[in-house]
Write a protein that binds this DNA or RNA. Structure first.
Lengths: 198, 198, 198, 198
DNA sequence: GATGAATGAGTGTTCATTCAT
DNA sequence: CATGAATGAACACTCATTCAT
């Protein structure tokens, strides 16, 4: 009943988060019950609460972490890129790589916002807006420097994000398209959409 | 107690469906409880079952109806259009009009598939594929007739659908953009994305 | 599973309240679990919630009803009595009769105040103060009319109430003292305590 | 982690008991959870068990200690008093002093008996009876020596105890009455109640 | 002696579903 | 058709207790 040998809290936590993401991805947050989640982490239900506060707050922290990681990885990838075109292509590549490698995370990051309390919703949606703002900055800079001429930068940002994020709804690792090819196709679609010869 | 004057069964049914769609839209199917739904239709919980089968089957029928209406409206709108470019622009207009006018329906049509049983899932997803096939046919025909030259028709179909459907995640009736302008912008984005001068 | 023949909601409610009072009396509110309470009323746990809102709110409503009944019965009994001495003796009789006939109710009415939320506490304690005020009025009137001469009316009120209410902690229906004799003894103690020859 | 400097086991124990008494006083034994209790003593839950046996047994030992202290302090105070009247007044003073100085202890000593196991109950209630017996002896001796003439010594003992113990339900250290005055008032009430001119 | 972690047995509460009236 | 009431299965969450470290 006490602590088994060689078990660290941080490890357990990681296992729980992974399992939660998988479960939420498959059937949604509401449909995930904590008994099963505990079982995934080789715990009894009660033990889960040594790691997780409340189901509801757990979701928020999960989504927040996902968004923070996304932002951080994005920042790192964009480091050093100046030219808007270069940044555009870099962004497309990054977004697809992230959204295919972290398919489950991004999916629930988009779907489960409605399961948040209003307060939590504001917290997470803020991070989302940050990401959006970075993308908008790229389009805006390209617009200013005459690289492309858009009807509406704001709308085009949202359109571009929808276009790319949509991938996560059908992408399968074992699908017929190698990821590299997928990136090339979407980079071209993006360039064209902005009216740059592709 | 008998039926209150002036209330017909079909009306009640419509009220229930509307209320269900609104509730599912806001917080998801799992989070909709039937007592509240009944209240929306001015019924007590027990009475709901005079109109609705099982919660689960109710969802399936809701989604099916939505998809059938979408397909039917689409077919009607496309009638008489031959030229792929004309069809493309018509489709963009139709899709946006439908997805903004029926924002809640389309949203749950995309989100709640995972709440279906496998059997129901197959049933509904089939209709979805039909819609997709119609769109793919447009792109394919344009490709054959040399109107545009796409890397991958299948992928581009999905991309186009994501692009357009994404609108329903942020569109607000009272937003700054009139719908007509939105359609124009997206028609241009679509044309450009296919590599047709916009 | 539906409603059994000949069962009325009001009857069930009465049964539940009675059972709850008995259970709370014996082991306290916290120790009363709703599964057992339901069983006392021949219900399954879920059915209890057709009659009871929340455990917490149920307690408050129980205590409130007890206090309201006490006040009402008190008012009725005091009707027509003017002379402070008559009222004093009438009050002693009433209080003992009520607190022995309704031993369980009064006991939990005194004990379970601490299980209330602050809000509920204020609600109930207000009624209690009303009862106290009625008793104080008797002592005060007697003081004014020179029937007795007390050091402190307020304190004596509390003392008198403690004196009488204490009975409910040891009184047993099958005890050696007939109730009538008990009343006589306490009436004498009360008169004496106020300094009136007994 | 080792023991922090300057903290002895006995101190910790005292802190825990104090905290327990305060918590039980406020919301009852059942409502006191050990995690919070540990926190009060600056401990984590697990560490509590280095000091405290079982929750249940802890309560019994708490109540027993309280009763033992009461008895011991009572015996000490009564030492040397012979005359029943002197003993009566001495008892009233002692009881009030103890029950106001140790308000929390006496309160839970009266309230939490029902949370004991039958075995523990017998153990504690025995001590209570001892105290009662001492008080009864005073009344009985006074009766024999003709100091007062009571209808029923046993009942009057209980009445006297209720009268005095009731103070602990409303007494506040910062209240309007100085303790000395309170004692005088109650000594008078007691004398009068026994029919001795006050 | 202190701590983090695990555990099992509850415990209140929700909810879809059924059915006599 | 509407309704009140019953039911079982689930569910999130709590808590006393234990024990390797």
């Amino acid at each position: 009943m006490g602590r088994p040998a060689g078990v660290s809290g941080a490890d357990t936590m990681r296992t729980i988060r992974k399992a939660a993401i998988a479960r939420i991805y498959r059937h949604g947050f509401e449909a995930m019950n904590l008994r099963d989640l505990a079982a995934d982490a080789n715990l009894r239900l009660g033990s889960l609460y040594n790691h997780v506060p409340q189901k509801q707050e757990f979701l928020a922290s999960l989504l927040e972490d996902i968004m923070l990681e996304l932002l951080q990885d994005f920042a790192q990838r964009m480091t050093g890129l100046r030219d808007p075109m270069e940044r555009l292509l870099g962004f497309v590549r990054f977004h697809i790589e992230w959204h295919t490698a972290r398919k489950e995370e991004t999916f629930i990051g988009n779907m489960e916002l409605r399961s948040l309390t209003p307060e939590q919703y504001r917290r997470i949606i803020g991070l989302r807006k940050d990401y959006e703002a970075h993308v908008r900055a790229i389009l805006s800079d390209g617009q200013k420097s005459g690289l492309w001429k858009l009807d509406d930068v704001r709308i085009t940002t949202l359109a571009l994000l929808s276009l790319l994020t949509g991938i996560s709804t059908w992408y399968r690792d074992d699908g017929r398209l190698r990821q590299e090819r997928l990136i090339r196709i979407y980079q071209r679609l993006a360039r064209r959409m902005l009216g740059v010869a592709g």
